[in-house]
Amino acid sequence: MSTLSTLKQPASLPAHLTQTSVGKKILTAVTGFIAFGFVFGHMVGNLQVLIGQDQYNTYAETLQGLGALLWVIRGFLLLAFGIHIWLGIQLKLENWAARPVAYKNETTQQASLASRTMIWTGLIVVSFVIYHLLHFTVRTTNPEYADLTDSLGRVDVHSMVVLGFSSYLISAFYLLSVGLLCYHLSHGVASMFQSLGLNSPKWQKRLDVLAWLAAIVLFAGYAAVPVAVMLKLVSLPGGGI
């Protein structure tokens, strides 16, 4: 092809994925898919709180027992989340720059509110995740959680969750954040397929429905834990809070 273009093109697959608009879309979709996988798995893990203290503490101990593998998984997830967030911010800045003068009379034809607020829902969820890690994983906000043990001498994450969600403020912030995450996914899940080229007019509606179903299921799964604690359906082993 004798092209008149003298532009330098990316020379490797990583360069294609990080330097071009289409490549960045594909990478955003792939890292989004990994993040979605984690969000789903984490929900399934969380729901074990409802089964009982023994089940949940056993699950937590199993995860901790992974040792080095746990850190490999954490590193992989952190990398995927990091790339997803970095690309999201970068793309947003480029998109703002692409229309320096705004319309005086702007209208929206069919873009959903979720699709137009991805950067904001995303950034709020990031700030929540940072708090969530400081709260339950690193326990900077509540160092006393580390002293909780169950009758078998294991770290009592079940009681930690119950104590954590006994605060209406924390539960409310959690529900809001999870709600925004699911709203983010109501666009993200369908968008992911389009960005990877897996879409057609026939599938577009179905993907939209699938994305909303995924969002609703995830919200129900995540909301179940704090709601159960607040309704006292799940409580400390001694029964007192």
Binding site: K24, A98, G197
Partner: peptide, 30 residues
């Protein structure tokens, strides 16, 4: 700018080009 799958383009296209062409381009580019 970059495509974030708003599909505003498809709604206004006077020739009714569908966003499936963007999906096709993404596959072609990959």
């Amino acid at each position: 700018g970059n495509c974030t799958n708003y599909y505003e383009c498809e709604a206004v296209c006077p020739k009714e080009i569908k966003v499936e062409v963007i999906a096709k381009m993404n596959r072609e580019y990959f």
